[in-house]
Nucleic acid binder design. Structure first.
Lengths: 111, 111
DNA sequence: TGTGCTAATCGTACAAACACGATATACGAT
DNA sequence: ATCGTATATCGTGTTTGTACGATTAGCACA
């Protein structure tokens, strides 16, 4: 990233990009999908489902947690994760807003 | 990426992640937004709008082109770019499909 | 044929992402 | 107290992304 020009963009663009970036790896897509379909989602269950080492999965979980898409609680010796639907839906609305905005602006193009 | 375990995920997950990744930088969000609102979008116009060097913008354009979200044509000494709405909408549908799928599976969670 | 413009590509530097094994931590059970 | 299990974190190597200046390539026009 050399010198993170990122900050010079509009807040909206940065937020949207961060959300997209969080979904920008198949492992994280897979994790969210797994989390959605299990009621009690323990870290180990996810590790089994993915073709990755435990430590790598842990990293992806951390990334999703940092952006707020998932929450985690400690339950004895294990960790339970779940999607934070409030955050998820916020991002979804934001994304929808952006796509419908640019779709409205859509013009017949010249190329 | 060490050794690109990426290939071991499902095609659907990879496609979705690639799309998200393409949107995973504010510059590329900004580029698409600009492209949507101009009929004749010349590379130079985009460069002026962004806080980045010409060569860097060119790289981002290339990335968007590679995944198919935009098309480019040469027009004399300049380059014209536009969104490939067919591709854009394809990805949008894919994303919608995924979000509604996981929303349906949504359970009251335990954490 | 040369000049001037636009945009792509090259080379480079640095930062971040990805992946793993090894280790540390935290807890339950014995 | 000890052991076993589950998960997080650390250290490390490799790859990819981001950014820039410099150069190249293409085209229009004098």
């Amino acid at each position: 990233m050399a010198l993170a020009r990122k900050e010079e963009f509009a807040r909206k663009e940065i937020d949207l990009a961060d959300f997209a970036k969080a979904l920008g790896h198949p492992a994280r897509i897979a994790i969210l999908t797994v989390l959605a379909q299990k009621k009690e989602c323990i870290c180990g269950d996810i590790v089994i489902d993915l073709p990755l080492a435990q430590s790598t999965v842990s990293q992806h979980l951390k990334a999703l947690k940092e952006i707020g898409l998932i929450k985690g609680t400690v339950d004895g010796p294990r960790s339970r994760y779940c999607i934070d639907w409030k955050v998820f839906e916020k991002f979804q609305r934001q994304f929808d807003g952006w796509t419908s905005k640019i779709s409205e602006l859509k013009q017949e193009n010249t190329c």
